[in-house]
Simulated scan of single mutants.
Amino acid sequence: MSISKLLLAAGVVGCAFAARPAAAVNVSMGCVERYSDASGFTTDDNVSLTCDAASGFYGLFNFWGGNALRRFWQNTLVWPTDYREDSFGGSDSIEADWSSADLHVFSGHGSCQNPPVSTSPDFLVTARNGIGRNANFVNIGSSLRLGEFPGSGVFGSNGNLNALMINASCPMDLVSLTTQWWPVFQGLHVAMGHSGDVSHDNLDSPTKLPTVGMWLGLLGGPSGSVSYRTAWMNAGLIDVQDGVCAVITGTGRTEAEAISRRDAETPKQRIGDALPATWIAWRWTCK
């Protein structure tokens, strides 16, 4: 589907549900350029632009000011426990979620299969290894539970996150999207990532994330009127190999609400929280 058709569809459903008034956006970010081996020693790696890209994103996202950067973890400060739920059932301990952030951006490595199948796990890869082989790999489907509410988590409240943006290799493969991503949405509204395989990959880029930030911030104006879908569909295919898809996913209590979140939610105009989410809707555009 062409970008023009995607944007037209977004305009049609954008008024389906009332959104919260425009408000400041709390942002947290994690980026990794230097990975460590199992012994904790920093190793040379093939990503050198992920933190610059994250910084560029926030600079343009906050062009009009008023938003708040709550946390910006870099390299060895990006831990698996920032993204991995230690326990389920109401106790939220994921740093990226229980903090006051409305939007979290991860920029670093993912992991691709050749090719993925419907049961293939999706990953993001943090910098600090735990105990054991590949302990810094976060299995998205089995470990991430975002936006949990209401309840009394170990830090006084459950998750607050509305939007998650992952700039990495293959963290949202289309073939396994419903099996791997549906459990993640525990109040989370929208998530963005890429689909691919070992031969069709998202590349290290100085411009992709900043361009997303330009759409959401600079072009969105002080009211933040540009949707996540518009930004991700327009910028998500910058510096990717042929066959890679930019993907956005949303959930809701009804099919219409899931579609409205996917197509029309913006950082400052957020469709109100509602659980349980019983529908999932996704879109993609491919190179």
Results as ranks from 00 to 15, higher is better:
191 A>C: 03
170 C>N: 13
184 V>E: 04
81 T>R: 11
69 L>R: 13
60 L>R: 14
26 N>F: 12
89 G>F: 12
36 S>P: 00
101 A>L: 04
233 M>H: 08
164 L>P: 07
267 P>I: 08
67 N>F: 09
200 H>I: 00
203 L>I: 01
161 L>Y: 10
104 H>C: 05
34 R>S: 10
33 E>S: 08
128 R>T: 14
241 Q>H: 08
260 S>Q: 13
273 D>S: 13
153 G>T: 06
33 E>C: 02
120 S>I: 06
198 V>M: 13
58 Y>H: 12
100 S>C: 10
147 G>P: 01
92 D>M: 07
205 S>G: 03
249 T>P: 00
114 N>E: 14
209 L>V: 02
155 F>Q: 08
76 T>C: 02
237 L>I: 12
12 V>H: 10
37 D>W: 04
240 V>D: 12
98 W>A: 03
90 G>H: 11
161 L>R: 11
213 G>I: 03
41 F>K: 15
180 Q>P: 00
80 P>L: 04
287 K>R: 14
20 R>K: 14
259 I>R: 15
19 A>Q: 15
208 K>I: 01
248 I>T: 13
92 D>I: 07
174 L>M: 01
67 N>M: 06
208 K>W: 04
159 G>P: 10
41 F>V: 14
198 V>L: 12
254 T>C: 09
6 L>E: 11
8 L>A: 14
117 V>Y: 09
204 D>E: 03
278 T>D: 05
45 D>Y: 15
75 N>I: 00
287 K>H: 13
199 S>W: 09
10 A>M: 02
42 T>P: 04
193 G>K: 01
52 D>R: 04
245 C>V: 05
16 A>I: 01
70 R>L: 15
105 V>R: 05
238 I>T: 13
54 A>W: 08
85 E>V: 10
88 F>M: 12
195 S>V: 02
129 N>T: 13
252 G>H: 06
70 R>V: 15
268 K>W: 07
9 A>F: 05
258 A>D: 12
81 T>P: 00
143 S>R: 01
59 G>T: 14
106 F>R: 03
110 G>K: 09
97 D>N: 04
156 G>F: 10
168 A>Q: 07
174 L>P: 00
75 N>T: 00
158 N>W: 05
90 G>R: 10
92 D>N: 15
263 D>K: 13
15 C>M: 11
215 W>S: 05
212 V>K: 00
62 N>D: 15
154 V>F: 11
241 Q>M: 14
261 R>S: 11
170 C>M: 00
61 F>V: 10
242 D>S: 15
17 F>L: 09
25 V>K: 08
68 A>C: 10
107 S>M: 12
18 A>V: 07
125 V>T: 09
69 L>E: 03
